[in-house]
Amino acid sequence: MLKQRIQDDVKAAMKAREKQRLGTLRLITAAIKQREVDERIELNDDQVLAILEKMIKQRRDSIAQYQQAGRDELAVQEQSEIEIIQDYMPEGLSTEEINSLIEEAIASSGASAMKDMGKVMGQLKPKMQGRADMGQVSALVKQKLSG
């Protein structure tokens, strides 16, 4: 299980005195625990991946804001956190695989216009969770449905 792997890596980072890695791993475990306590559930791997994906998205947004503000040292910090978090994400999909899955979802849902976007994204999300930037996927779907 992914959660156990993260907990084991926290211990390893403590022993190796890897402060930055340990800090990021603690942020991950805190986010997982927060959701488990709030919802009174034990998270499965898909739910942990959703948390990790959200953390990466938040950091990408922060990087853009830091760069606009000229705070490059903070942008570098956020980027290094993204790299640590991505260690726990499944292998990413190639552009060809993403396009193929989008075409397949559009065909199987019978989508023909922008109003069908929700149907298409509903099919794509479980297949692509943690393996593609869903913001980019959404933009590609919009492009194909409006074209």
Rank of each mutant, 00 (worst) to 15 (best):
M1P: 07
M1V: 02
L2I: 08
L2R: 02
I6C: 00
I6N: 06
I6E: 01
D8Q: 11
D8Y: 05
D9G: 04
V10S: 03
K11N: 09
K11Y: 07
K11R: 13
K11D: 11
K11Q: 13
A13L: 06
K15D: 07
K15P: 00
R17I: 15
E18W: 15
E18C: 07
E18L: 15
E18I: 10
K19F: 15
K19N: 15
Q20S: 13
Q20E: 15
Q20G: 14
R21I: 08
R21M: 12
L22M: 09
L22A: 01
L22Y: 08
G23W: 12
G23F: 13
G23T: 09
T24A: 10
T24C: 10
T24L: 02
R26G: 11
R26F: 05
I28M: 02
I28C: 04
A30D: 12
A31R: 01
A31N: 04
A31G: 01
A31I: 00
E36I: 09
V37P: 00
V37S: 00
D38S: 12
D38Y: 08
E39S: 10
R40A: 09
I41F: 04
L43C: 02
L43T: 08
D46V: 06
Q47M: 01
Q47H: 01
Q47R: 05
L49M: 10
I51N: 02
I51Y: 08
L52C: 01
L52E: 07
K54C: 10
M55D: 04
I56P: 06
R59T: 01
R59C: 05
D61Y: 03
D61K: 05
A64Y: 01
A64W: 00
A64H: 06
Q67H: 01
Q68H: 13
A69N: 00
A69F: 03
R71C: 03
R71A: 09
D72I: 14
A75D: 04
A75Y: 05
V76N: 00
V76D: 09
Q77M: 14
Q79A: 14
I82E: 06
I82L: 04
I85R: 11
I85N: 03
Y88S: 01
Y88I: 05
G92L: 06
G92T: 07
G92I: 05
L93Y: 08
L93N: 00
S94T: 13
S94A: 01
E97V: 09
N99E: 13
S100M: 08
I102E: 03
I102L: 04
E103Q: 10
E103V: 02
A105S: 05
I106F: 08
S108T: 15
S108R: 15
S109A: 01
A113L: 10
A113Y: 13
A113F: 13
A113W: 14
M114A: 14
K115W: 03
K115Q: 12
G118Q: 14
G118P: 06
M121H: 10
Q123R: 15
Q123T: 13
L124N: 07
K125C: 00
K125D: 05
K127M: 04
Q129G: 08
A132E: 09
D133G: 05
D133V: 02
M134L: 15
M134R: 12
G135W: 07
Q136T: 15
V137G: 06
V137F: 03
A139N: 14
A139C: 08
A139E: 14
L140T: 06
L140A: 10
V141M: 05
K142R: 15
Q143V: 14
S146Y: 00
